[in-house]
């Protein structure tokens, strides 16, 4: 039998990789992709907990996370398109309107 902690460990590592991707990439699409990666790592741990605790709530949460991820992807990509129309570049350094 696989212990629960293995799943959690896997989930943590994948999450960390997602965070690294988010921080180091220049391409906005890649940043988005990293976010999806993080969401997936969380999903793994939720599903694992659901299984080991014999509770359905974890799976339901995964379901909602996927819903939100879909919405978020649609909106985020739309923002990227709008940005691209404004300034034909999708690198993170170029998008710095918040710079103080």
């Amino acid at each position: 039998m696989v212990p629960l902690s293995w799943y959690i460990l896997l989930s943590t590592v994948v999450f960390g990789i997602g965070v690294i991707g988010f921080i180091i990439r220049r391409n906005l699409i890649m940043i988005f992709l990293s976010i999806e990666l993080m969401l997936n790592s969380v999903n793994i741990s939720l599903a694992a907990f659901s299984h080991y605790l014999q509770s359905m709530t974890g799976q339901i949460l995964v379901f909602f996370v996927i819903t939100v991820a879909a919405a978020e992807a649609a909106i985020g990509l739309a923002i990227i398109i709008a940005l691209y129309r404004h300034k034909p570049s999708i690198t993170a350094e170029e998008v710095n309107l918040l710079k103080g």
Partner: peptide, 27 residues
Amino acid sequence: ILVLFLFVIMLLDVKDVEMERRFLGLW
């Protein structure tokens, strides 16, 4: 979702020059 990503990538037509530097300086 991934197909959406692909669509957007195709749509934006990102130049190769931009892809040359993958990472930020703070990587």
